[in-house]
Amino acid sequence: MSFASDARAPADSLFRRNLRAFAANRLAFGSAIVVLIFVVMAVFAPWIAPHDPAATDLFRRLQPPAWMEGGDWAFPLGCDALGRDILSRIIYGARISIFIGVAVILVATVVGILAGLAAGYLRGWVDIVISRIVDILLGFPYLIFAIGLMAMMGPGLANIILVMAYKEWVIPCRVVRGETLAVRELEYVEAARAVGASDRHIMLREILPNILSPVLVVATIRMADVIILEAALSFLGLGVQPPTASWGAMVADGRAFILESWWVSTFPGVAILLLVLAINVASQGLRDAFDPRFSE
């Protein structure tokens, strides 16, 4: 029952109200700060990292973290099998993870929005073609497909991004299509047509701003998955090639010594866990604040 009378909304934009609701959720807000720390780390890596991430020093091979016997505070998290500083490599690795995550999501979201808007608004054969492609891509065992594709195209930053975006756009596309189907029936869309607006105007100016919230929420949720997938590909040696530091490859490098030198694999693993968890919690908070349909 909606007895709470229609106390008129204060002069305040919807966006700012949502942002305030988000800030009020402490866990999500804290997580967002953790994500922010990772981003700062990635951006300012050359100034923050204590050592060159590629500099090898065989004398420090498998040196343990600082607090253990044989450790050294100059290399707080120890060194890997080639004597490279693990902390510096994690800091630089954040660059790769976050860059690839952002790039893939950006490409996928732009493609997904355009395809989803076209399918949802224009309907007809456009919708049939796009929806079938989406169904086919969703039906594929993706990891096997990605491995095959990477093997074919060869490793490299651009290729990784392409291979991941290749399927990732399907997710925002489905969200956008569904939202568009609902919004296109609203009267203000008809009103825009009634004054003579073009399909392009209606899709980009009338519909898109109203469906952006769920798309942003989905993008952040998917960001975590993309980061994990990148780590998995790097772990399998199909990702960014050495000597560039990547968390997934670092975990893979440490596999051989996991029993005696656990820190080589563990710290990059913890970095992946921390970033992915923080993104997930923060995106959940975003979802609650910006898309109240999902929350109670």
Partner: peptide, 8 residues
């Protein structure tokens, strides 16, 4: 309510 785009 429905005939005006809330974001414009």
């Amino acid at each position: 309510y429905a005939s005006l785009n809330p974001r414009r």
